[in-house]
């Protein structure tokens, strides 16, 4: 069982640059066909300053910032026992290749299900661009199986 003292834990702010090559690889991996996610000229023709980030890319930023699973490691969670339970996004401003986003994560809640077989960790992450605009709010619920063969 994960120690409840992690409720309210806040990460240090971490800055991640949105890179064109990474956006193109993400678009390729997800089977994207819209050229605005690959071709800067197509993106500009559609009114964007550069390649836009697709809707779910914000989830990747924490990993791409070089801190994958940082709070889970802190909690002593074995990533082999991890499942993604829920994910939510709220979009307030678009962001693009070349932007530098500052991420801050807070552990909003930790609850237990199935008589302690599962811990649910709810994290909230805000991404703010280099002009101080809040771009994306995220809510993530991770499920930790306390018995790996559950």
């Amino acid at each position: 069982m994960i120690d409840r003292r992690f409720i309210g834990w806040k990460s240090e702010p971490v800055v991640v640059e949105v890179e064109k090559g990474q956006l193109r690889l993400f678009a390729e991996a997800t089977g994207e066909t819209n050229l605005i996610y690959f071709d800067e000229e197509a993106a500009k023709a559609a009114g964007h300053p550069s390649l836009p980030a697709p809707p779910t890319f914000a989830f990747c930023l924490f990993n791409l910032a070089g801190q994958p699973y940082s709070y889970l490691r802190l909690m002593g969670v074995d990533i082999a026992c991890l499942l993604h339970g829920e994910q939510a996004f709220e979009y307030l401003a678009p962001y693009y290749a070349g932007d530098a986003l500052t991420l801050a994560t807070e552990i909003a809640d930790i609850t237990t299900k199935k008589n302690g077989a599962l811990d649910l960790v709810e994290a909230r992450t805000d991404a703010i661009n280099q002009r101080g605009q809040l771009c994306v709010k995220q809510r993530t619920v991770l499920i930790v199986r306390n018995e790996s063969k559950l």
Partner: peptide
């Protein structure tokens, strides 16, 4: 592409 390298 996502940076999620979980081997699972």
């Amino acid at each position: 592409g996502s940076g999620d390298h979980n081997p699972i």
